[in-house]
């Protein structure tokens, strides 16, 4: 947090809204922010290096590309938590995994190239952990606006 200065914040807030598609996109953003193209490129490289940005590029709809996404949850005994985490995270299809304070205490997102891979991965996780995986696929999306002012 402390390592972000006001220029970093400006860049992050601006680029969460999009990035231009033209010959000199960095120059266009830089002009808007009243900085030089070189400074913008250098700052982005630093933000990526520090791990403050998870992505800089094209963001896509997995489902529209023929893939599938789902949210799944498990109730994992505390004593087995680390072991189960290692099993679940070893699957390349697991995109996010969070511990949450609920009886269902492990929540992860599966993203697969083929839709039929979702039930397969779930079965494999159940087989390897001996625990039930609750699959909670999205039925309707009302809003996606993940954009955080920093």
């Amino acid at each position: 947090m402390d390592s972000l200065d006001s220029l970093d914040r400006l860049i992050i807030n601006h680029l969460q809204g999009g990035f231009p598609i033209c010959e000199r996109p960095y120059l266009e953003v830089a002009k808007y922010l009243h900085i030089s193209e070189a400074v913008l490129i250098e700052r982005l490289a630093q933000l990526l290096d520090k791990g403050l940005l998870s992505r800089f590029g094209l963001l896509y709809h997995a489902e529209r590309l023929g893939g599938a996404l789902t949210l799944a949850a498990m109730s994992v005994p505390e004593t087995e938590f680390d072991q189960v985490t290692a099993i679940v995270n070893a699957f390349p299809e697991v995109a996010h995994n969070y511990a949450r304070d609920h009886e269902l205490n492990m929540w992860f997102v599966l993203a697969t190239e083929q839709p039929e891979r979702v039930p397969e991965v779930i079965q494999e996780i159940e087989a390897q952990t001996g625990l039930t995986v609750y699959n909670m696929p999205k039925q309707t999306e009302y809003y996606v606006g993940l954009r955080l002012e920093v």
Binding site: I12, G18, G51, L52, F56, L65, L146, L148
Partner: peptide, 15 residues
């Protein structure tokens, strides 16, 4: 609509 947008995604916890 195959692509949502170009831009960045932040690591919210780190921020």
């Amino acid at each position: 609509g195959l692509m949502k947008r170009l831009g960045i995604v932040v690591r919210h916890r780190q921020l």
